[in-house]
Amino acid sequence: MSKTHVSTCINGDTHEFLCDTQNTLLDVLRHELDLTGSKEGCATGDCGACSVMLDDRLVCACLVLGVEADGKEIETIEGMSSGSELHPIQQKFIDLAALQCGICTPGVLVATKALLTKNKNPSEEEVRFWLAGNLCRCTGYDKIVRAVLEVAADMRNA
């Protein structure tokens, strides 16, 4: 079967690729485009390690087909910092030790940015339910939730 030509914008750059219809967006990001910051923890949409933004919507890249990305805007973890500046969320996660092994971190950061775009002043409960789709096995979530609440406050006051 022939491959489909797909044209997208990823982290502000135009990307064109050919993909099989069964390839997921995550396969394309990781294997075709070498954007390995999005992680595969399950490939079934349960762990959230592949969280990306697709036209400003938070999705699991493993549940989106590569061909569906045609004409869409995608934002991945690789696009979060600007130049040599970390995004305040990234900096806060480092400052508060909100990561241990770091495998879930890209997905958690993308999901957090999506939350804070929608809701600038989330409660602890809102943070916990928003991030319920991002599994972390190392931290017990405590420092992640604290980092999100603290950076939300910082960004409101900025």
Binding site: G37, E78, M80, I94, G102, L109
Partner: peptide, 12 residues
């Protein structure tokens, strides 16, 4: 290793 882990640069 913090920056590598929050930017997706760290290689697993």
């Amino acid at each position: 290793d913090g920056v590598d882990k929050v930017t997706g640069r760290a290689l697993f």
